[in-house]
Computed example of a mutant assay.
Amino acid sequence: MSAAKQGDRKGSGEWREFFWNPRTHELLGRTAASWGLILLFYLVFYLFLAGMFMLTMYIMLLTLDDYKPTWQDRLATPGMMIRPKGNQLELTYSLTQTKSWEGFVQNLDSFLTPYNDTQQVQMNDDCIPDQYFIQEDSGEVRNNPKRSCQFNRSMLEECSGFPDRSYGYSQGQPCVLIKLNRVIGMLPGKDGQSPLVTCAAKREDSDKMGPLAYYPPNGTFNLMYYPYYGKKAQVNYTQPLVAVKFLNASLNTDIDVECKITSNTLAPGSERDKFAGRVSFKLRIDNK
């Protein structure tokens, strides 16, 4: 037992001596000079790494343009989105339950506020339709901020929220707004032909959807709203919209709808990317 205690004391003493040796003035086996050299090495090493990182970031930032991306992976066809979005692109509501569609109406009201005619007249230009609104820079002189064309809310007619504050949801004739995602510099048409939106039901639901009305009446994104120059260069830009109104959709059943963009410059969407040049959503209107 005594030998065991002596062994424990010896081990404890060795550990204390390793941590701090009063004879050699070593801490954890190193003298103050040794610790100083190690700390100095790592200080210089990490300062060098930080300096390299800052230099790399500085050089990279010199290549960037505040108004236009230096590198841009151009999508063959931009995506599309709807408003109101609903839950996972599902627009389901009941005609007899006002609360079931009030959220859709509020979403549309909020989304269309920047499109109010009075606001558009103050901020944007009355452009010539069916031709691009080109605003190039003059050499090193920036033509910023760039102007934008008016897209007045009244152009959506029956889906503007003016003649019917419920956008048709209370009558079972809901409006759905469609927008094309922004891509800087994109030219979506040629020869004066604007890209066209068409909507149809999936094959098994073709007899449920009923007739549609498009607003503006031609259902196009007019060329005068392109090209888009970026959020910072074109601060007042408002995306063109196409509204689709379901005039006689079947009640108490799911209707799978797909809207596509048709253009003579944009490639048709592929099956690999279901959001390229198209958007799919489900519509269900209950009357109970």
Rank of each mutant, 00 (worst) to 15 (best):
T63D: 14
L247C: 12
Y67W: 07
D137A: 07
D130H: 08
F221L: 03
P217V: 10
V279F: 00
N181M: 12
N222P: 05
C149S: 03
G51A: 14
G168S: 09
G11Q: 14
F281A: 02
I82R: 03
I255N: 00
F221I: 01
M54N: 14
Y226S: 03
N236W: 10
M60H: 15
F246M: 05
F104W: 02
L43Q: 13
G230M: 04
D130I: 05
T262S: 08
Y229S: 03
F19H: 10
G189C: 02
L223T: 00
G161I: 05
L64F: 15
V44F: 15
D109W: 10
R147D: 07
C199G: 01
P216S: 05
M209H: 02
T98W: 12
V121N: 11
G269L: 04
E136K: 15
K202R: 13
A249K: 02
T265W: 00
R182S: 06
L247E: 09
T98C: 10
R9Y: 13
P145L: 05
E158D: 14
G161R: 04
M80Y: 05
K274T: 15
P211H: 10
P268Y: 12
L75T: 03
Q122P: 00
P188A: 02
F151D: 00
G192N: 00
S263N: 06
R9W: 12
P211C: 09
S280Q: 14
F162S: 13
L266D: 00
A3L: 13
T198I: 06
C127A: 03
D73T: 08
Y169H: 08
P22G: 11
N21D: 04
D73P: 05
N264H: 03
N248T: 15
T63F: 15
E157F: 09
R23G: 07
P240F: 00
A50M: 12
N181Q: 12
D205Q: 03
L75Q: 04
R16D: 14
S12R: 13
V105S: 05
L28H: 10
L266W: 02
L247N: 10
L212F: 08
F48P: 03
L112S: 02
W101T: 01
F111H: 15
V44P: 05
P129H: 05
E136A: 15
A33D: 13
F18N: 05
V235H: 12
D254I: 08
S206I: 08
P174W: 01
Y214F: 10
S206W: 09
G139I: 01
N143F: 07
D286L: 08
M52C: 12
E136C: 10
V44N: 13
L91D: 01
M54E: 15
